[in-house]
Amino acid sequence: MPAETIGRTELTDVRYEHGGDDHVFVELAEEMSFDANFRAMAITQQIRERNLDGINEICPANASYLIQFDPETLHPDALIEELRELEESVELTDYRWDTRVIEIPVLYEDPWTEEALMDFRERHQDPDSTDLEYSARINGYESVEAFIEAHSGQPHMVTMMGFVPGLPFAFQMVPRDRQIEVPKYVAPRTHTPSRAIGYGGAFTAIYPVPGAGGYQLFGRTPVEVLDVEQELPGFEESLVFLDPGDIIKFRQIDREEYDAIRERVEAGTYEYTYEQTEFVPGEFFERPYEYNRELVEALE
């Protein structure tokens, strides 16, 4: 019987580490969990609100966070002391945040990522399968179609931004026994098409620009997640479209729709389908499937 709630994780072994003289890295847990991620987001939001002098960068990550600062203004030990206090005071049950539910259309098994993955077959665990066939099999799905259904059926939360500007790491909002987990390539590819949908560990990534990459390739989206010139609708305030805490719903599309959306993106007329909402961790933990349905229904 698969779990119907999100298992809670107690974070008992938080590590405070110095990154040279000007960074502090806090690893909330070695393993990924919503608890670790939500705490990383809650704590970093609190640090932002405290507006401490000397802090230059506040970066929440999947199960950790990173701070860069001027040690002349803020001694690393004083910072760590402040962070320890915050860690004790943050209660996730009191916590909620404004977010967006965003539809990202995906052409799964698209010709561009298929060409890329065939070019680098010798770097893959299973050179005789496609990335989707391999991922479906090792996760116990009877077909690629059923696997795609699982990946696109429930939403994913952006738990970290990084690697390159605009790239989201997204963690599917389902109990752990329903999470998809795949290895990265044995050796990274030197080429990945832009807008590829990849999967590594327990995370979906969307590659903003072409480049190297080690994630299993599932498909390609016609929409952009990075617009350096900030000319497209949706990029008025930032050159990246997504933020940590955003909720992504992948929607399967066919080639015809892909081309039609791509045409609108290139013409600068594509408007993202999204809704503002408030995310309440407590409710999500208790009844994830029902909660997800409500979130996604807002898009319709």
């Binding site: 890295f25 070695e30 990550a61 860069q68 990265k184």
Partner: peptide, 21 residues
């Protein structure tokens, strides 16, 4: 390997890299 990290012993759950790390 912890959940979400990936199977290689060098893999960790994706995290921030300090400049200079």
């Amino acid at each position: 390997q912890p959940f979400g990290a990936g199977p290689d012993p060098s893999n960790v759950v994706d995290l921030g890299y300090p400049v200079g790390s």
